[in-house]
């Protein structure tokens, strides 16, 4: 049995869902951030799967752009997380409640 396109799509949809659920239920900022990275990588898997299935290179180029953006986002995000940790010594989002929701 050769791998089908739908297998890859199902896997990436599952990874994406795990990421979404993780962002919603995790209380630690670093874990939430990792879940967001998981969502981005699930998208990358979708792109690569389509790209290889169509024999078209543009999907893989998109993956490079996404990876670059994710790296930039990680740099800024970790910077923000370090600042907030310096000011309050906690990474629990429930403590970040000066501004009421």
């Amino acid at each position: 049995m050769t791998p089908q396109l739908s297998w890859y799509l199902a896997l990436s949809a599952m990874l994406f869902t795990i990421g979404v659920v993780g962002v919603l239920i995790k209380r630690n900022v670093i874990s939430m951030f990792m879940c967001i990275e998981l969502m981005l990588n699930a998208v990358n898997l979708t792109f690569v799967a389509f790209s290889s299935f169509f024999h078209d290179v543009s999907g893989q180029l998109f993956v490079f752009i996404v990876m670059t953006v994710a790296a930039a986002e990680a740099a800024v995000g970790l910077g923000i997380i370090i600042t907030i940790f310096r000011n309050r010594e906690s990474l629990d989002v429930d403590d970040a409640s000066v501004l009421k929701l």
């Binding site: 900022v29 969502m39 981005l40 998208v43 986002e73 907030i84 000066v98």
Partner: peptide, 20 residues
């Protein structure tokens, strides 16, 4: 700090949806 953190988490969350 808090504003920046919330904006960052939810903004990246939204970007991931857009990207998917």
């Amino acid at each position: 700090n808090e504003s920046s953190l919330k904006y960052f988490i939810l903004g990246s969350f939204a970007s991931a949806f857009l990207l998917y």
